[in-house]
Design a protein around this nucleic acid. Sequence first.
DNA 1: TATTCTCGTGTGACCGGTCACGCAACGCGC
DNA 2: GCGCGTTGCGTGACCGGTCACACGAGAATA
Lengths: 341, 341
Amino acid sequence: MSDTDIPETTGRAPSIRDVARLAGVSYQTVSRVINNSSALRPETAAKVRSAIAELKFVPNQAARALATSRSKLIGVLGPRTPTHGVASMVQAIESAARAAGYRLTITNLATSAPDDVRSSIDHLMQQSIEGLIAVAPQTRVVPILDELKLPVPVQIVASTGTATSHNDQTAGARAAVRHLIELGHTRILHIAGPRDWVEADHRMRGYLAEMDANDLSPRPPVLGDWTAQFGFEAGLELLRTEDATAVFAGNDHMALGFMHAVRAIGRSVPEDISVVGFDDVPESAHLWPPLTTVRQDFVGIGTRAMTDLLAALGEATEEDSSSDPAQLRLIVRSSTAPPSR
Amino acid sequence: MSDTDIPETTGRAPSIRDVARLAGVSYQTVSRVINNSSALRPETAAKVRSAIAELKFVPNQAARALATSRSKLIGVLGPRTPTHGVASMVQAIESAARAAGYRLTITNLATSAPDDVRSSIDHLMQQSIEGLIAVAPQTRVVPILDELKLPVPVQIVASTGTATSHNDQTAGARAAVRHLIELGHTRILHIAGPRDWVEADHRMRGYLAEMDANDLSPRPPVLGDWTAQFGFEAGLELLRTEDATAVFAGNDHMALGFMHAVRAIGRSVPEDISVVGFDDVPESAHLWPPLTTVRQDFVGIGTRAMTDLLAALGEATEEDSSSDPAQLRLIVRSSTAPPSR
DNA sequence: TATTCTCGTGTGACCGGTCACGCAACGCGC
DNA sequence: GCGCGTTGCGTGACCGGTCACACGAGAATA
């Protein structure tokens, strides 16, 4: 009795045939309407449309997917740690996907162990995704992806551009280091990201290459985990053992932790030591001191990845591929200054 | 010719009947194996399993969904801005969902305009989700969700617990303000989150209630947008016009921006003014000064939301609901001190 | 007026699973 | 020996769409 308050809870959801019956047409006609295909007489379409509205009919995607063997589903593989960059990119990917009529299914790596990666990809493939975007993946993910030879197009977004355009990542790192060198620093340390992250690797390469290009001897980079906590601890250690005037951190958070360490031992940034980060998270401009860093256009990168994937799926998107989101820009703020000694 | 390198690329994916044929059994038997249901003779099951492996057969979820009318899909509705908290919760939700055999589909609000909210929910419903989790939604989302009377269970996660347990959110804010009062502050400002966010509202209520309970007159809260940038600008303005000794910010990022403003005008935290944030993002411990804030267990909250949703779906999860993730904890660091005047 | 060509719409089969049965073979009690 | 319940597996229909094709009515053509 009390259940009758809600009207349409009668049995199952209305189907295309229910609509057809109400509109007095065949189910095929209804199908044509919901796909707004071929020439229908306007009044017929109107009849169907009003029947659809009356019944609150919603096409069943599973049935459609089954019949067409097109799932309109894109899988996203994310890292375990949801950083600002990853979250922004996923956001952008979602928007682009939805605009193109695709849905998104997401899964995150628990660890980067091969079995785990494979099981995550399986999880995605079982949903019969039509394309896969791996966001900021660990390096170990890439060979697994290759080896699997997935029957769908794959985009690997290593935080900047696709895997095929990651060179810019390195260039960004070089720009950061060059900035320090131009200020007069020679003893420059690098706190890198985790060993198995693609971007960490590229930034580290950038550091090494730029040092080398200027005949400076790089110190072996410290491998961190992207967190401020690590930056802090590594900072404490480095400041005790190393005699450097500048540090290039693999991301802003580690830079932030490092600056904390500098203060903790009674020294200051940039007077005693200069610090450069990477990413330009929105907070970096407001740190103390405001952080010199390398800006990435996360949204642009995410959108671009989706656009590329859609292209691989043969989906025509009127893209303004004019702007290349892979462009990184050095943002100079006050955490860097000429060395005092 | 060269195509024959890859063996099974022949036409479409293998179906249950292909497996049956190869294993010499009926398709129903294969179905039983992949659902490991009812009593099968072990050797029969083994035969089928090896056929499955040989064919690399993967059950078609669309077909299964169609036949069972169970999509095993959970929809997640996220805000436009991907904050640390939201990202963490979504991550946790995904893990819990996958563990329970559910998949996730995500969509983000472009704006909080009713039409936009409705269209996002439509987008989700069209995928015949079995449950919906709205993460950290704007207040306007809640009535729309109610009004829509969705035929699936809905969980609203307002950053702390479900909508029904948001009182703790207010309690957290009260604890933050009480801390300032106990230090001796009386002129305390509040930089709130956006007007239409559930959590912003609760934190503001907490501020007002605690001030009131201590016979202190609250200042009208400034409504921000959660960003450090806003905290900075609002800080510049407030420090010029107001004569306060402490500020309670609606989140850590705004607190961070505010501290920047304090320094920018040559004053310092906590000597001249104390600052409290909210969330305890991982960076907060490493800011200068380290930020006193209210810690939220984002992962716990996300997991809990999923557990509750699964319960509503009649899914038995052996949960240790003993720990209540909605517990907020004040973390006192050095951005707060007794007033100097 | 008969023929052909559209246009608009309907019919049957099918996508790949699941469900409700049906049925043979076997073990058991009497 | 018969009846009966299990166990183990197969058959047909169905979920809700789409596709290929058929078909009738009117317009265009002969």
